[in-house]
Design a protein around this nucleic acid. Structure first.
Lengths: 239, 239
DNA sequence: GAGTGGTCTAGACCACTTG
DNA sequence: AAGTGGTCTAGACCACTCC
């Protein structure tokens, strides 16, 4: 399953990441102890520690001294601030709702196809989605997925995809998002956007393009989101 | 110098970081080999490796297999994309000029004082600065520094601070920036901003607030930058 | 071939949590 | 006291670069 030419610690990291993606250990539950992992994989404990170090740095897992190592994933509030980096004004306790409006199986435009590394004849699934805070629409999203990794999504009850997509990807499609690249820019509202977001035509909008990658580094989602500029804040740490 | 209660690998990391900040090893030059560092500090090589791992993850140093470990600092193009995350349209080869306009020693406003963790009676140095691409002003910056760590900055020839501030901080004040937090938002140009940036009043601007931290995790610079929204792009990787 | 970092071992002892 | 992760050792051998 894993490339045997990879270092042992990488293989063990992949093994654990895959097990987590497949929900073999529930969120908040401990993974096997380092001693046990070492025994199972037939390596020294230092090698296991290096594998776990990687997972910690990816945010997939959390060490607690004296207790164990725990699956750390976005049960809720977490994924919000890992990937939903938008807050209207300062309030920390925001909790956006998600509302999938539209789902289709289509050929993606060229830029999306490239970002998702799809072959020219491969299909994508497109979804339109609104994010709301209270009654207010704060973000209109246009989401693209590789169809072959999300078989059956079109037949799902839309409610199964709410309030957050990434936990649903994980549970339903064994796709675990571990990182993403985002590009921010500013655009002006056209007529339809203005109507959806409740701003006047030509009002400034924040545009966020995101490409999200799974535990194996493959791109699995591309989205473009638009939100009203007023009150928009985006926080990030750079190194 | 370093807290002896810290783990050895932390102490060694601090030792190396400090040496780099003090320019004991030039940019692009190799630091001592791992074997040598181990001998000097009287530890096993694995401990040194852990220290160097930290520095690599901080981007301070770069390993090259078979050759050595090299000081990686923003000699030039690097710091641009580490900390100057602004590009007008897609062109990758941008190289913004910096032009310090104004320097003063003043009491900082409350929010700046807090961000820099200054005591209520401590002074700050304020600088105004323009960033240009070709003839065009792309960013107007308002920069605040703790006065006690930048003694003598007011007497310097402004040219000593160009084209980039962070290398100057490092050479002249032994302050090495290793990370920063940024908050992006959108504002509208007032009359003076409009004039400086060459846009009409009320035009949308990108506003970037940044707090930068040194190798010891202390905040050493706060700045607020404004640039025209048109053509603005900000790329970031999130985990 | 000599020198560098990269991987891995088989332990030891310490610090913290839980019963 | 037992079990967990955290630090550290004193090596071994491999992969890569340079001469």
């Amino acid at each position: 399953m894993t490339d045997p030419r990879l270092p042992r610690y990488q293989q063990i990291r992949d093994f654990i990441a895959r097990a987590i993606a497949h929900r073999e250990w529930a969120t908040g539950e401990p993974i096997p102890t380092e001693a046990e992992l070492a025994k199972v994989h037939g390596v020294a404990i230092g090698t296991v520690r290096k594998a776990v170090d990687l997972l910690v740095s990816e945010g997939l897992v959390e060490r607690v001294h004296g207790k164990g190592t725990f699956v750390r994933r976005p049960s809720f509030a977490n994924s919000l601030f890992r990937f939903f980096r938008y807050s209207s004004d300062e309030s920390e306790t925001l909790m956006p709702g998600g509302h999938v409006q539209d789902r289709r199986r289509v050929m993606p435009p060229e830029d999306v196809r490239k970002s998702l590394q799809l072959a020219p004849n491969q299909y994508a699934i497109q979804m339109k989605r609104l994010r709301t805070l209270g009654q207010k629409v704060v973000l209109a999203e246009d989401i693209w997925l590789p169809a072959d990794r999300f078989k059956g999504l079109l037949d799902l009850d839309p409610a199964a995809l709410e309030p957050l997509l990434y936990p649903a990807y994980e549970t339903l499609f064994k796709v675990l998002i571990v990182r993403a690249e985002e590009t921010l820019s500013i655009s002006l509202a056209n007529a339809s956007m203005a109507k959806i977001l409740g701003v006047h035509e030509g009002a400034p909008l924040m545009a966020i393009e995101r490409c999200a990658y799974d535990q194996d580094g493959r791109p699995v989602e591309w989205r473009r989101s638009h939100g009203p500029a007023a009150g928009f804040r985006y926080r990030v740490e750079v190194r």
